[in-house]
Simulated assay, not measured.
Amino acid sequence: MARKLVKKRGKKVGAAPGTLVHVGDKTDTVAQIRVVDYDQEHLRDQRLKDPNACRAFKSGPRVAWINVEGVHEVHTVEALGQGLGLHPLVMEDILNTDQRPKVESYDDYLYIVIKMLQYDPLQHEIRPEQVSLILARHYVLSCQERAGNVFDGVRERLRTGRRIRFLGTDYLAYALLDAIVDNYFALLEQLGERIEALEEELITRPTPATLAQIHHFKREMLLLRKAVWPLREALAKLTRDETSLIAAETRIYLRDVYDHCVHVLDTLETLRDLLAGMLDLYLSSISNRMNEIMKVLTIMATIFIPLTFIAGVYGMNFEHMPELAWPWAYPAVLLLMLGVAAGLLVFFRLRKWI
């Protein structure tokens, strides 16, 4: 069954703006809150059970990274939003996992939406996940739909005390964005390998299952394009708009992420064109196979038409047919049929029809 590209909003339809309703996949897992607060000398990594405890990081002396895994718990997102002073519309968008990538500016923070994409090699499909980032002066809040390992590299850089520990929240937000966009390249590499294998299968022996795979990957390309195309506009806005939350030095790194996004789009369009060409190639291959079958059947029918005529003539029960009384009439007719068939085959060969 094909996966739906648009999520059902259910109770969200017709609700007042700012109504906190989760839109997305349901899960029974418990939301996890992990906070990493650090400065140049110290780092503390802890898990919090009470979302209200995050109030202390709103204006703390150190940089804080608050990561939430699981936005299906409305009360958790609501408590975090109230503690950090987030607008109700921002909390609403965090819970609505069908948002398009965007950047929105508020008085003392930026709200960024980006899609994290991972490839499932067993189902050969993309698993999208919405990630919401809140970039403030003293903290970065990241909200994920489920647990993952994409941000493990950022945590390792924080633990080893590299450059990221000496810079502010804007650089931390850049590192998170860069980790997500870099993961797109790994996704495209896996998709590219599968599509190339599908192309070889299409050339050698196409089947109806091959056509189903082509349509499947065309839908996956639509999902990928829906996630990456608006991201380019959002990243351009981050590098272009003037805000005190992003330093001039960090904008240079954000431009690098923007370049990576453009590269991803170029690769995506290449794969889409390849799939479109594969669909045409499949239809041409099926048509050519049908033409070859009809060609063989036509040649066989053409050879047997005169043989059927000869057999029909001598199968008539007329009394005065001189050939019927000849001793060698039967082998002579067989030789005549064989000669006619051989002559037709030679004629077809000379005309390069076979």
Rank of each mutant, 00 (worst) to 15 (best):
C261W: 11
C261S: 06
C261R: 04
C261G: 04
V262Q: 02
V262R: 00
V262Y: 01
V262C: 05
V262D: 00
V262H: 01
H263G: 14
H263F: 04
H263V: 08
V264C: 09
V264A: 15
V264Q: 12
V264F: 02
L265K: 06
L265H: 06
L265A: 03
L265Q: 05
L265N: 07
D266R: 14
D266Q: 00
D266Y: 04
D266N: 06
D266M: 10
T267D: 15
T267C: 15
T267W: 15
L268S: 07
L268C: 05
L268D: 01
L268Q: 03
L268H: 10
L268T: 01
L268E: 08
L268N: 03
E269P: 14
E269M: 14
E269R: 13
E269I: 01
T270G: 15
T270R: 15
L271K: 05
L271N: 08
L271R: 02
L271D: 14
L271T: 02
L271I: 07
R272G: 10
R272F: 12
D273R: 14
D273C: 06
D273L: 10
D273E: 11
D273Q: 13
D273K: 13
D273T: 12
D273H: 14
L274A: 01
L274G: 01
L274H: 00
L274E: 08
L274R: 03
L275T: 10
L275K: 15
L275Q: 06
A276H: 04
A276E: 06
G277E: 04
G277I: 01
G277N: 00
G277S: 15
G277L: 00
G277F: 03
M278A: 05
M278Q: 10
M278C: 05
M278Y: 09
L279F: 11
L279T: 07
L279W: 01
L279N: 10
D280H: 06
D280R: 09
D280E: 05
D280K: 04
L281N: 13
L281M: 11
L281A: 14
L281Q: 08
L281E: 02
Y282T: 00
Y282C: 04
Y282E: 04
Y282W: 02
Y282L: 01
Y282P: 03
Y282K: 09
Y282N: 00
Y282M: 02
Y282R: 01
Y282I: 04
L283R: 06
L283E: 04
L283N: 05
L283W: 09
S284K: 13
S284C: 12
S284P: 01
S284D: 13
S284M: 12
S284Y: 12
S284Q: 07
S284V: 13
S285A: 15
S285W: 11
S285T: 13
S285I: 09
I286Q: 11
I286A: 08
I286K: 07
I286E: 08
I286Y: 10
S287R: 09
S287M: 08
S287P: 03
S287E: 03
S287C: 05
S287N: 07
N288I: 10
N288T: 12
N288A: 02
N288E: 08
N288S: 07
N288R: 11
N288M: 12
R289V: 04
R289A: 07
R289W: 01
R289I: 05
R289Q: 09
R289G: 09
M290L: 09
M290R: 09
M290H: 12
M290W: 06
M290D: 03
M290Y: 07
N291Q: 10
N291S: 06
N291R: 11
E292I: 00
E292G: 08
E292C: 04
E292F: 05
I293Q: 11
I293H: 15
